[in-house]
Nucleic acid binder design. Sequence first.
DNA 1: TTGATATTGAGAATGAATATCAATACTATC
DNA 2: GATAGTATTGATATTCATTCTCAATATCAA
Lengths: 133, 133
Amino acid sequence: MSEPTMSGAPRRRTWQRDAVRDALGERDGFVSAQALHAGLREAGSPIGLATVYRALADLAADGAADHLQVEGEALYRACGSSGHHHHLICRSCGKTVEIGAAEVEAWAKAVAAEHGFREAEHVVDVFGLCSDC
Amino acid sequence: MSEPTMSGAPRRRTWQRDAVRDALGERDGFVSAQALHAGLREAGSPIGLATVYRALADLAADGAADHLQVEGEALYRACGSSGHHHHLICRSCGKTVEIGAAEVEAWAKAVAAEHGFREAEHVVDVFGLCSDC
DNA sequence: TTGATATTGAGAATGAATATCAATACTATC
DNA sequence: GATAGTATTGATATTCATTCTCAATATCAA
């Protein structure tokens, strides 16, 4: 029998994974794997690109990071709140605000049910220009 | 002064563009450029891949097609309603329902304003399993 | 019909993301 | 603390979607 609540990820702790987690946490908004890797290298870290991709994928799988696709690129961000939430993102500087939206959750569920759809998930993100841009 | 209502696109009519528009219209859900091209070739059309990409980009720019990014792939769909709308998409068979959502529009605008964001746009799509899947 | 030019398409080029695989580092165990 | 077993790393090759190039061609207005 499988145990859904058990984290099936026996992850070893390495300075590389810590570096990626830390670097991601220091960023305000969403970053690409490429950009994060470039930043780490600039800061003197010899970490490899493939490792950054893997670390980010793991963080996302563990629920420690959010990710979204923009213009054919995957962007990641350290997760503040642990539960389900959405984002308000500045399309100029990348500044991001995490937002909860009970109304939207309810709406999505209702719309799905209305059309006979089950197991509904949704993608909801708001893009704009923040007060500093 | 610019004229936002004027179509700044002096497009020439070619059988290739018509073929892409028609093929897209015949599909139920979202399709990738690659898939659409493969379908056209299978149907005997000698149309080139680059042309399909260009035609789809033009349709999207002209507001005749919607597009969204899934797993690093751009997907297109012929637009039913001309105005702003969202989608309810079956993640199994791709069946898509266009949905309007005044409540969500209002919510997005309110959330953006609340945090000092201007020129807010939003991405709202619901994925689920339709009644046939 | 003709001329100006937008469009096409085969293939090259780009760029993000993943696979490969030997060398290395982490963890539990003794 | 030493050691074996194995997950992880990283330089590089590879895949794959998308865009670019540019000569040949088709479209549209005159």
